[in-house]
């Protein structure tokens, strides 16, 4: 008994993708007409691109990237703009008085899968209202060479103290220790618009906006 399978309908898309093998006919076998055609294609590209180069009208590598022509980015002079949510180099955001917002809770260094964040926490001086509520980082070090730019540190931070919105990637250096970024360096970075914007307002204890929970009410 013969089984006949129902013929599969070929979609228009599949038909359109079908590529014919080059046909053997007199022009391909003689070879020379095809060579001439090939050289003609090269010439078209050559003259079109040379003209654009000479007239200084190379297509913009971002806005006209689908146009024919040379859309190479001449790297150090031109840079590909990174998308808005690109995770670049870290920066530590600042408070109004210029201190880091980091409270040295070690959430980021705990979350970091590459274990490249080192924080040495310090206590505020006796009598400071923040003493007992929060600490501050004495040392805050990120090894940018180890970092995998996953962004977990940013998500883990409860204080919006660490961000990756600088829009730049770490520049290449000669030696490894230059990739170890210290607190001061991390605090000096700005976001990609050049500002030190941090969206989450701080609610210091004593402010009207502060929820009012403090250690005095704690039972432990």
């Amino acid at each position: 008994m013969t089984v006949t399978f129902p013929k599969k309908a070929v979609s228009a898309r599949a038909k359109a993708m079908h590529v014919e093998a080059a046909e053997r006919n007199i022009t391909t076998q003689v070879y020379i007409p095809e060579v001439v055609r090939g050289v003609a294609v090269s010439m078209q590209h050559f003259f079109a691109n040379t003209k654009e180069m000479l007239r200084g009208e190379r297509p913009d590598p971002v806005h006209e990237r689908l146009d024919p022509g040379i859309s190479t980015i001449s790297y150090p002079e031109q840079k590909r703009p990174y998308p808005e949510r690109f995770r670049g180099m870290h920066r530590l955001t600042l408070r109004a008085n210029g201190d880091p917002r980091c409270v040295a809770c070690l959430c980021c260094s705990t979350a970091c899968p590459a274990q490249c964040i080192f924080i040495e926490a310090g206590e505020y001086a006796e009598g400071d209202p923040r003493r007992g509520h929060e600490r501050f980082p004495v040392r805050f070090v990120i090894d940018e060479l180890r970092c995998i730019f996953c962004g977990f540190c940013v998500e883990a931070c409860p204080c919006d103290a660490i961000r990756m919105d600088t829009g730049v990637h770490p520049v290449p250096y000669d030696s490894r220790d230059q990739f170890i970024y210290k607190k001061d360096l991390l605090m000096s970075f700005v976001d990609r618009d050049g500002g030190r914007r941090d969206d989450n307002p701080r609610h210091e204890p004593g402010d009207a906006s502060h929820p009012g929970i403090d250690r005095t009410a704690a039972t432990h």
């Binding site: 913009d60 971002v62 806005h63 006209e64 689908l66 703009p81 990174y82 998308p83 808005e84 829009g167």
Partner: peptide, 11 residues
């Protein structure tokens, strides 16, 4: 000219 996406805006 194709102005789509945030990189285009940044450009």
């Amino acid at each position: 000219v194709w102005k789509v996406g945030s990189s285009s805006a940044f450009a």
